[in-house]
Design a protein around this nucleic acid. Structure first.
Length: 253
DNA sequence: AAATACTACAACCGCAAGCGG
DNA sequence: GCCGCTTGCGGTTGTAGTATT
């Protein structure tokens, strides 16, 4: 996986701070045309005065196709709460279950929003109000701490094309510690058509068509076409056998 | 209108793991 | 086995925008 060490020992003064639109354009153009390959060589070849690490981060967190922008949905927050309870601060693993969201984005959202809501929730549990008005918290007006165990039917759907647009998506379902999370979500997530990302997917070559989820679908007799036009469970996509599992078993709040 | 405080998010830093020479 | 390098991850800091005083 590692590329050849570069001999770039020149004391290059790397630029820091926010990226300009011009830098974004250069990086995007380069990666789309040539792929990133070895990140340390990207800034050199792309004509950027950044280090490879910075380029990689910018691409993954901001420029990569398929990223969602904008506010987190209620369902997404629900997943984050659930997975954080299961996995802790394993943001990269959590991000695998939120297509289009980056670990950095989830981490930031956790620290700026969800952590406070969790604290608020715990406070309410420690100091429950006696009047009935407090029950309004879960009635929809206040979304502080999503009632994750409330219902499975309200849980999110996952865009198949979103999954495969993540160029390095490799869920570690084989690891025992992750299986509860995978199982939990496999019960609740379905893949469905995404015309917006279909073309994105079709542009990708090689690595994505060989991805584990694509292979599993093909081996199960599901055509590429069907992957976009058929609702499937995560089980079908990943060939995951979770046994008898209930998401509620793993709720922590 | 200006100053200050707060919030959200982008980016950096340090560390650990993996890999090839 | 050691060393140097790259990559990935999580914690932390910096910055810009917004709200409040």
């Amino acid at each position: 996986m590692r590329c050849k060490p570069s001999n770039n020992k020149l004391m290059v003064k790397y630029k820091k701070g926010l990226w300009s639109p011009d830098e974004d354009q250069k990086l995007t153009s380069y990666v789309m045309n040539y792929g990133h390959g070895c990140w340390s060589s990207v800034p050199i070849n792309a004509g950027l005065q950044r280090n490879g690490k910075s380029c990689r981060l910018r691409w993954i967190n901001y420029l990569r196709p398929g990223l969602k922008r904008g506010a987190f949905s209620y369902d997404e927050e629900e997943i984050i709460f659930t997975l954080h309870g299961l996995l802790g601060n394993k943001w990269s693993q959590i991000s695998q279950y939120l297509p289009g969201r980056t670990d950095n984005e989830i981490k930031n959202h956790w620290h700026s929003h969800l952590k406070k809501r969790l604290a608020k929730s715990e406070h309410l549990q420690d100091h429950p109000k006696v009047d009935n008005t407090s029950s309004n918290l879960s009635s929809g007006m206040d979304h502080s701490v999503p009632p994750v165990s409330q219902t499975n039917s309200n849980l999110p759907k996952i865009l198949f094309a979103d999954w495969i647009s993540l160029d390095e998506f490799q869920p570690d379902f084989g690891k025992s510690s992750d299986e509860p999370a995978a199982a939990a979500l496999s019960h609740t997530c379905t893949a469905y058509q995404s015309n917006t990302n279909e073309h994105e997917w079709q542009r990708n070559e090689g690595s994505t068509i060989e991805s584990i989820e694509t292979r599993n679908c093909l081996e199960n007799g599901i055509s590429i076409e069907d992957m976009f036009h058929t609702q499937m469970t995560i089980d079908q996509i990943f060939g995951f056998d979770h046994g008898d599992f209930r998401i509620d078993d793993f709720m922590y709040i």
